[in-house]
């Protein structure tokens, strides 16, 4: 399968009084048709900025640039062309289902809006499609739901409506920005299962953005780990979880509590130190201020290692088993 989305050297710069904040620092990746790419990283690592940049939804103060930004042979840097793709072949769902729907309009209206705009056709056809999609995401008596307002729905139902809304135009790529973070645990599991089922049934590609590595292991085909606006490691889920190469990835995986393995009462794992300031350039490795293996070479240019399938950015080519256990 060829790449559906190709991103080369994506940058997001935000002008602040203290200087230019580089939220995304030259990100290069691709998404193949039908696969799930998880972008993981802690708060402020630029994962949400990346998704907003792809959708051209960045706040006005943020500037986007990229060497390549291609979606199915369309250049997304061309805003006129991108407008026909956005909300049509490329859809997005957000973190906060409670506020992402407009309180002033019934959900039927909001569901059919993008469909009518991109696909045209009659209102009746759009409503029929909306009923079909609500049914697909597991909402009971969908026809009656069309007349309801968002405040009449629970958080889980609203996220289902958001997913149905994104699927209305039969997109090839769905960007999900922390779609389960705001939901309680049981609903989280349901929504996650729903997304996985839909992905398999419809064969759409998904970019799933999360800080929760536990979720990643359940849905990802490929994983990209981000730190301080840059990619530190990328590979298949098996490579990332089975043989992580970058010290940051290793530390993150160490931090996941596991039933049966993590002893009761022990403190949860943390990575010591704080994320470096994103204002200005960072010379060398972005993680070196918190890396237990940091040394002199880390301060100058750090090469990207590995083959196409599994890439990581580190001075060390070999895995670092010594790190195990040091973060507890």
């Amino acid at each position: 399968m060829g790449a559906l989305l190709t991103v080369d050297d994506l940058r997001v710069d935000i002008a602040t009084p203290r200087g230019t904040l580089r939220a995304v620092r030259g990100l290069t990746f691709s998404v193949n048709a039908g696969e799930t790419l998880c972008i993981v990283g802690e708060s402020g690592c630029g994962k949400s900025m990346t998704s907003l940049a792809l959708m051209d939804l960045l706040p006005r103060v943020a500037k986007r640039s990229a060497a390549t930004l291609n979606f199915a042979d369309t250049d997304l840097s061309d805003r006129r062309k991108a407008r026909r793709i956005r909300g049509n072949q490329m859809a997005m769902i957000f973190q906060e289902p409670m506020t992402a729907l407009n309180p002033a309009f019934p959900i039927g209206d909001q569901l059919t809006e993008a469909y009518l705009h991109h696909k045209g056709g009659s209102r009746a056809a759009a409503r029929a499609r909306a009923v079909e999609m609500l049914d697909l995401v597991g909402i009971g008596s969908p026809a009656e739901r069309l007349g309801q307002y968002p405040h009449q729905l629970s958080g889980g139902l609203r996220q289902r409506v958001m997913i149905a809304m994104a699927l209305m135009t039969d997109p090839k790529l769905l960007i999900a920005d922390e779609p389960t973070t705001a939901l309680d645990v049981t609903i989280q599991a349901q929504i996650l299962r729903l997304l996985r089922d839909l992905q398999q049934k419809l064969g759409i590609a998904v970019i799933f953005i999360t800080h929760d590595l536990g979720l990643v292991s359940r849905i990802a085909d490929r994983v990209m780990v981000m730190y301080a606006g840059a990619m530190v490691e990328e590979g298949t889920a098996a490579q990332i979880f089975g043989a992580p190469r970058h010290p940051y990835t290793q530390a993150l995986i160490e931090c996941i509590p596991q039933p049966g393995r993590t002893a009761r009462g022990t403190p949860l794992g943390t990575i010591p130190g704080v994320v470096p300031s994103l204002v200005g350039q960072i010379e060398g490795c972005v993680f070196r201020s918190r890396c237990p293996l940091a040394r002199r070479e880390c301060e100058s240019h750090v090469p990207t290692r590995g083959a196409e399938g599994h890439r990581w950015v580190c001075v060390d080519d070999a895995p670092a088993p010594a790190l195990e256990g040091t973060t507890r």
């Binding site: 909300g87 506020t99 992402a100």
Partner: peptide, 14 residues
Amino acid sequence: SNDYVRTARAKGIP
């Protein structure tokens, strides 16, 4: 500044 405005933009609405 509300999320629903971002949702509407994400749908590609002019």
